[in-house]
Amino acid sequence: MRHIISLLVENEAGALSRISGLFSARGYNIESLTVAETEDPSLSRMTITTTGSDRIIEQITKQLHKLIDVVKLQDITEGNYIEREMMFVKVKAEGEPQRSEVKRLSDIFRARIIDVTDTTFCIELTGSGDKLDAYIKAMHENNIVEVVRSGSMGILRGERALTL
């Protein structure tokens, strides 16, 4: 099962390597990991997507919690949550009809073209991982120059929140 674990960690050098080191040392999967400072500069917010049986996920959350740098964590997939990922795609766009096709496809996915040259478009797209996958699939493989994905971030719906 795929799980999204949100963490608040001390914003200190080494915190990230402790967490990623835990995953590699114990043989757990990391599908994606994102991290950035929060509105409180002493804290970082991290989102880890991982897969494993219930037992492994239980161990992952316990082991993460045991790390001294981890202040708080939550497996948000246990609740009602929203998940988004952001992607930049650089595609070849050389004359017509290629340029119009890319533009049309991007409109369908509600993507935005954020950089344009004579030969390329750079497209920004936000959505669930599946949506990003679908966009890439719909785009002709040969057209794709470069893909940058942020990894998932998630937040709980409603009043529940991961805060101190």
């Binding site: 037992r55 239980e58 161990q59 316990k62 082991q63 919690h65 045991k66």
Partner: peptide, 11 residues
């Protein structure tokens, strides 16, 4: 004392 010791190898 360590929650991660519990149900690690044996439930």
């Amino acid at each position: 004392i360590d929650p991660s010791s519990i149900s690690k190898t044996v439930s």
